[in-house]
Design a binder for these strands. Structure first.
Lengths: 362, 362
DNA sequence: TCCCTTATTGCTACCGGTGTCAACGCCTAA
DNA sequence: TTAGGCGTTGACACCGGTAGCAATAAGGGA
């Protein structure tokens, strides 16, 4: 409301008047008013135990009075570690990214840390160079690797070399526990299989994600486990590979619909592909949830907005983001994390909707 | 691959051997090797014109040889301005957020700037306090305000006060041109109306977003304009207000389907609501695209994955993110921005799919 | 030849914190 | 009385840059 945005010459007070341009208080101001050295103030803001109680209280009072907050940039410079958390991802699924961001922010909000996002493309040849630039330009306080990149060992090696703390979110334990959040995708897939078997389906197809993702294997494995516990097996001809994309789902769906022994149910590695399969089913004039049941994975917004709404496996992504942050930051956090955010693992849950129904008779 | 992640005491070399722990080169290293003062190096990296050509070349050579890159944290401290761009948003639409992020990153990638995200909730009472904390903790290089928050004048006032550059992305010009990207939502809505009128529809309903968003008004206004140009008018009883949510779309759809003069087409303020309206239509057993045509707005992923696929208005969000970044950073960018990213405005485009068809006869 | 201008460069003081280490006061044990 | 130990505190250098201004060299006109 005061002046222009342009970086031009600031309107300097012509007189050397006492009114200064509303500078933020610094550690020096606090030190002066509390009549201590700035080092002692530094101790207080860093919660050092070697400060006399009275002194601490006096300083705290001044801090509050001044509304002082330490400058993260200066702190970063002096301590060689910024107050930034990096989120590296390579994800076609926006909801997934947003949920992860949200989970991280749930935890770091109020602690003076900020979230810096760094999307990347693992197929780019200079992908690693990009990440390297990112992490050692900003000396990140830590990096969170959601499932889309957490399996990349080169990337992780890079972080280790750069001495940057990290947490990997993955379907299985890939690393030490303190560096990991495990999402147990397998369990969710098993539930899906049991659900379909319980509805009486015998001929059940699977459309998996790309082989390069661990999660594809986990989901298939869980699915097979679930079938097995119901006395069923996965027919190789009904085990198709997709690419986690809508288009690949359409293609897989068309192939399945053209099979001689057409399946009465299809379990897909994610919701995108499930939507594609649904489209293929529609093209043949069959009824989803009646003639053919479909189950997805992720519980993306799409799942609940489709018609019929998609039965799917909900993965608590936001919670995994929270956990990853707690793992990463631990004691640096101001407020004590909730116990539920300190588990280190997350469990999927089946959400039954209209796209899955009893197996058709005959 | 070298040592543990724990912040514990680093493995110091026991001997004061010549091998140092691979420190990043600093401006001092460059200065020493180029045999100049660090101020001159600083001039070179800041592209000051007051440097002799030979000197500059010598320094550039050393910089390249060392692989030197200035430390953004130190720079930030000294120049009181960080190398961080803030993205503040309050958006239920993940695709929108991701696209905006992507657009910003398209531009800042390689320039040493980073993107910090700050979601917020405008209904929280301490929303402004949160933002204030954010912007003056990190002295941001600039802030980008996508449509979900760009209309908040209090927020903008805050940024002005804090002398933080910003760019607002909005459906109309709300501010000076240099602080704005205009998305012209109105044009898109007009196209939608003309499309439906062209298909022979006479009774066309509208489900708008909340009144608190300028975009709701713009979209309705454009829609009315389009109808008018086709000799039609918007029946007040068929002009419903939603909340930009799926649920509100369902409710509006149900009400419309129960109207005496049931509309043969519905234009919705966004795709979420359009999906809701589709659901309501389905509940009544009517055919989407045949009995009732539906048009959305946004071209979210949902639109192309629904069945039938949704006719909608595509808003080039990513491009608007790019433009906003160019506006914001201008000369700070290393590479010259493409001309197309320097327009300051973006135009929506109708995408025709299966959810809109000829008006039913009779 | 001398002074002034212009082009280029370096000195020195910061920016706002943290790390190291010495110093100080007071209490206890010898 | 003195040495040692603990709890506290501050002086000072430093992190890696930028800012202001003086210093220096070269060129031009009187």
């Amino acid at each position: 409301m005061k002046k222009t945005m342009k970086p031009g010459p600031a309107t300097k007070p012509t007189t050397s008047a006492p009114l200064e341009p509303k500078r933020r208080p610094t550690i020096n101001d606090v030190a002066r008013l509390a009549n201590v050295s700035k080092k002692t103030v530094s101790r207080v803001i860093n919660q050092s135990p070697f400060v006399n109680k009275d002194t601490r209280e006096r300083i705290d009072a001044v801090i509050k009075e001044l509304g002082y907050a330490p400058d993260p940039v200066a702190r970063g410079l002096a301590s060689r570690r910024s107050y930034l958390i990096g989120l590296i991802y390579d994800n076609p699924n926006p909801q997934h990214v947003i949920d992860t961001q949200q989970g991280i922010l749930d935890i770091i909000r109020g602690s003076g840390l900020e979230l810096v996002v760094h999307p990347c493309n693992r197929r780019d040849k200079d992908f690693l160079a990009g990440v390297r630039g990112f992490i050692d330009r900003q000396k990140l306080a830590g990096v969170i690797l959601p499932s889309s990149v957490s399996e990349d060992e080169e990337l992780v090696a890079l972080l280790r070399e750069a001495d940057t703390p990290y947490v990997r979110i993955a379907s299985v334990l890939l690393d030490s526990e303190e560096n990991s959040i495990v999402t147990h995708d397998r369990e969710g897939a098993r539930q899906a299989a049991e659900h379909l078997a319980g509805l009486g389906h015998k001929v059940i197809a699977h459309v998996s994600g790309p082989d390069t993702f661990r999660s594809s294997h986990e989901r298939r494995a869980g699915f097979v486990e679930g079938l097995k516990s119901a006395g069923l097996a996965l027919d190789k001809k009904l085990d198709l590979r997709g690419g986690y994309t809508f288009q690949s789902g359409i293609e897989a769906g068309r192939r399945l619909m053209a099979t001689v022994s057409r399946p009465t149910a299809v379990f897909c590695g994610n919701d995108e592909m499930a939507a594609g399969v649904c489209q293929a089913i529609r093209e043949t004039g069959l009824d989803i949830g009646k003639d053919v049941s479909v189950v997805g994975f992720d519980d993306s917004p799409l799942a609940s907005r489709m018609w019929p709404a998609l039965t799917t496996v909900l993965l608590p992504i936001r919670a995994s983001g929270r956990m990853a942050s707690v793992r990463l930051l631990g004691d640096r956090l101001t407020k004590e994390p909730l116990e539920e955010d300190d588990q280190g693992e997350v469990h999927p849950r089946l959400v039954v909707r209209a796209s899955s129904g009893p197996a058709p008779k005959g």
